[in-house]
Amino acid sequence: MATTQAAPAATPSADDSRRKLSELPWPELASTLGLIALAVIFAIANPGYLSEGNVSAILQAAAILIVLTIGQTFVVATGGIDLSVASTMTLGAIVLGEFYALGWNIWLAALAGLVAATLVGVVNGLVISKGGITDFIVTLGTLSAASGLALIIADGKKTTVIEPSLIKLSVNGIWLFSWAVIIALGLAVIAHVVLFHTRFGVHVLAIGGSAESSRSLGIRVWMVKTGVYVISAALAGVAALLVVARVGAAEPAANTAFLLNSVAAVVLGGVSLFGGRATIAAPVMGAILLTALVNGLTRVGLSEFYQPLTVGVVVVLAAFLTRFNR
């Protein structure tokens, strides 16, 4: 690989193309290829699957998961994991609902929800990086704490949020893409730029690759680690707005499926769970794939009880793919 420049220009052969094939980033391509395969299979089984309406519906349903997945990707890229994303989103939604019920403007209420969610990330980040406690335990703790807090604040009840401008978020948009989807994809683009075109992004990957080397080179590991949890939580705060827009209410629900699916999408996206290797596009594709899978299963009439099973199988298969392609 390293000396190919100097190598005599060999005529392109079968061997050469096989080598090129093996150099493709298969883990990162898996979710896109999987999505295409899925689309073909379901389109054959159910002709309406690729209709404009259904594709739009899939994207709309994927928006929240995409936003959460982006945050999870940053955390996993450092070798951590954020189990609290879904509860943080719930907390953000509840705070939004409470302020809305007080008569606040919806966007100000959404900002309050965003701030509340971000605070969870600050706690996660500081306890993990400064306190030196395992990410798994800390975020498991905040998972429970944030959803508990949401229950307390909401007193266990949901707050209806009927707001025309919020409904537009899910209904209006451009072509196949509702505003919610555009927000999600816009955040993905920003995240991509942050990960690959800023010092912070390089440091995220460096820490995931080797926290010790990064430290020895003078990178402030604790700041970067705190940063990724704050990013994850802030994105959960954005997702809170989208979830309220979608449901039309702020519910103190557990939303565990979002947590599992965000990790699953990251795995499908070929992000190493040990950190150090990540993209944004592939996990986003992973999130769309999971949503498209559930949508397709519903359309072909498979009982919804089969869906978690199928999702689980797909995720483990994807993890295998990542394992064999380092």
């Binding site: 010092r199 390089v202 080797s210 150090g276």
Partner: peptide, 24 residues
Amino acid sequence: VFQELALVEDLSVAQNLFLGREIT
């Protein structure tokens, strides 16, 4: 140049060379 923790394996040569001193 430390014994073991010299380079980050999943970063490129260029990224490693400039790690902590990236040009922006």
